[in-house]
Lab assay of single mutants.
Amino acid sequence: ENLWTTASTFIVLFLLSLFYSTTVTLFKVK
């Protein structure tokens, strides 16, 4: 379960960073 928890945390952080960079890009375009 420890490995699954680590993987889940990594996926969440990846999605958050992806969402953040997408938002920054949209604001830069405007």
Rank of each mutant, 00 (worst) to 15 (best):
Lys28Ala: 08
Phe27Gln: 05
Ser17Gly: 08
Phe27Cys: 08
Thr25Phe: 08
Leu3Pro: 15
Phe19Trp: 10
Thr23Gly: 12
Lys30Thr: 10
Leu18Gln: 00
Val24Asn: 01
Thr6Tyr: 05
Phe19Val: 15
Ser21Trp: 00
Leu26Gly: 04
Lys28Leu: 12
Tyr20Gly: 05
Leu16His: 05
Thr22His: 04
Leu15Trp: 10
Leu13Trp: 04
Thr9Lys: 02
Thr25Ile: 12
Leu16Asn: 04
Ala7Asp: 09
Leu13Gly: 04
Ser17His: 01
Glu1Gln: 09
Thr5Tyr: 13
Ser17Lys: 05
Thr22Phe: 15
Phe10Trp: 08
Ile11Asp: 05
Thr6Val: 15
Glu1His: 11
Leu15Met: 13
Phe14Arg: 01
Leu15Thr: 13
Ser8Met: 13
Tyr20Leu: 04
Phe27Met: 15
Leu13Arg: 01
Val29Asp: 03
Glu1Tyr: 11
Ser8Asp: 10
Leu15Asp: 03
Asn2Val: 10
Lys28Trp: 12
Val29Glu: 03
Val24Gly: 00
Leu13His: 01
Leu18Asp: 04
Thr9Ser: 09
Leu13Gln: 01
Thr22Arg: 01
Val12Tyr: 08
Leu3His: 06
Lys30Phe: 11
Thr25Ser: 07
Phe27Ala: 08
Trp4Val: 11
Tyr20Met: 02
Thr9Val: 14
Phe27His: 06
Val12Ile: 13
Ile11Lys: 04
Thr5Glu: 10
Ser17Arg: 04
Phe19Ile: 15
Leu26Glu: 00
Ser21Gly: 13
Thr6Cys: 15
Thr22Gln: 07
Leu26His: 05
Leu18Gly: 01
Thr6Asn: 05
Val24Trp: 00
Leu26Asn: 02
Thr5Met: 12
Leu26Trp: 13
Thr9His: 04
Thr6Gly: 06
Thr6Leu: 15
Phe10Ser: 09
Thr6Arg: 03
Asn2Ser: 14
Thr9Tyr: 06
Ile11Met: 11
Phe14Lys: 03
Leu3Asp: 15
Tyr20His: 06
Phe10Asn: 00
Leu16Ile: 14
Val12Ser: 07
Leu15Ile: 14
Leu16Glu: 01
Leu15Gly: 07
Leu3Ala: 14
Ala7Glu: 13
Thr6Ser: 07
Leu15Val: 14
Phe27Leu: 11
Leu3Asn: 13
Ser17Asp: 01
Phe10Leu: 05
Thr6Phe: 11
Asn2Arg: 08
Thr9Cys: 14
Thr5His: 11
Thr25Leu: 12
Asn2Trp: 09
Val24Arg: 02
Lys28Arg: 09
Glu1Pro: 05
Thr25Cys: 08
Trp4Glu: 13
Thr6Trp: 04
Ala7Gln: 10
Ser8Ala: 14
Thr9Gln: 02
Trp4Met: 10
Phe19Pro: 01
Ala7Leu: 11
Thr9Phe: 09
Leu16Ser: 05
Leu15Lys: 01
Phe10Gln: 03
Ile11Gly: 07
Thr22Ser: 10
Lys30Val: 12
Leu18Ser: 08
Asn2Ala: 15
Thr23Cys: 12
Phe10Pro: 01
Thr25Asp: 02
Phe14Ser: 04
Leu26Gln: 02
Asn2Gln: 09
Val29Arg: 08
Glu1Phe: 08
Asn2Thr: 14
Val29Met: 12
Phe27Val: 11
Leu15Ser: 08
Lys30Gly: 11
Ala7Phe: 06
Trp4Arg: 12
Thr25His: 02
Phe10Cys: 08
Leu26Phe: 14
Thr22Glu: 04
Leu3Tyr: 09
Tyr20Arg: 00
Tyr20Asn: 01
Leu13Cys: 08
Phe19Asn: 02
Thr22Val: 15
Thr9Ala: 12
Thr6Ile: 14
Thr6Gln: 09
Ser21Asn: 06
Phe14Trp: 07
Thr23Arg: 02
Leu13Asn: 02
Leu13Pro: 04
Val29Ser: 09
Leu26Thr: 06
Phe19Tyr: 05
Phe14Cys: 01
Val29Gln: 09
Thr23Glu: 03
Val12Leu: 12
Tyr20Lys: 03
Phe10Arg: 03
Thr5Lys: 03
Trp4Leu: 10
Leu3Thr: 14
Ala7Met: 12
Thr23Phe: 13
Thr5Pro: 08
Leu18Tyr: 00
Thr6Lys: 03
Glu1Thr: 08
Leu13Asp: 00
Ile11Thr: 07
Val29Ile: 13
Trp4Ser: 14
Leu18Pro: 00
Asn2Lys: 07
Val29Cys: 10
Leu26Val: 12
Ser21Cys: 12
Phe27Trp: 11
Lys30Leu: 13
Tyr20Thr: 04
Glu1Asn: 11
Ala7His: 07
Thr25Tyr: 03
Tyr20Pro: 01
Thr5Leu: 15
Leu13Phe: 02
Leu3Lys: 07
Leu16Tyr: 07
Glu1Asp: 11
Lys28Gln: 07
Val12Asn: 01
Thr22Leu: 15
Phe19Asp: 00
Leu3Glu: 13
Asn2Asp: 13
Ser8Glu: 14
Tyr20Asp: 02
Asn2Gly: 12
Ser17Ile: 11
Ser8Lys: 12
Ser8His: 15
Ser8Leu: 15
Ala7Val: 07
Lys30Tyr: 12
Lys30Cys: 09
Thr25Val: 12
Leu18Lys: 04
Val12Cys: 13
Leu13Ala: 05
Lys28Tyr: 08
Leu18Met: 06
Lys30Asp: 07
Phe14Gly: 03
Thr23Tyr: 14
Thr22Asp: 00
Leu26Lys: 04
Trp4Ala: 14
Ala7Lys: 06
Ser21Pro: 04
Val24Cys: 07
Leu3Ser: 15
Thr25Pro: 01
Glu1Leu: 08
Leu3Val: 13
Ile11Pro: 04
Glu1Arg: 06
Phe19Thr: 13
Glu1Met: 07
Thr22Cys: 09
Leu18Cys: 15
Ser17Thr: 10
Val12Gly: 11
Ala7Arg: 06
Val29Lys: 06
Thr5Ser: 13
Thr22Lys: 04
Leu15Arg: 02
Thr23Asn: 05
Ile11Asn: 05
Trp4Phe: 13
Thr25Glu: 01
Phe19Arg: 02
Thr9Arg: 03
Phe14Val: 03
Ser21Tyr: 05
Leu3Arg: 08
Ser17Ala: 13
Thr5Val: 14
Asn2Met: 11
Phe27Arg: 06
Val29Leu: 14
Phe14Thr: 07
Leu3Cys: 11
Thr25Trp: 06
Ser17Pro: 00
Leu16Gln: 03
Ser8Arg: 12
Leu3Gln: 14
Ser17Cys: 12
Lys28Pro: 06
Ile11Cys: 13
Phe10Gly: 04
Val24Pro: 02
Phe19Lys: 03
Leu13Thr: 03
Phe27Lys: 05
Phe19Leu: 13
Val12His: 04
Phe19Gly: 10
Lys28Ile: 10
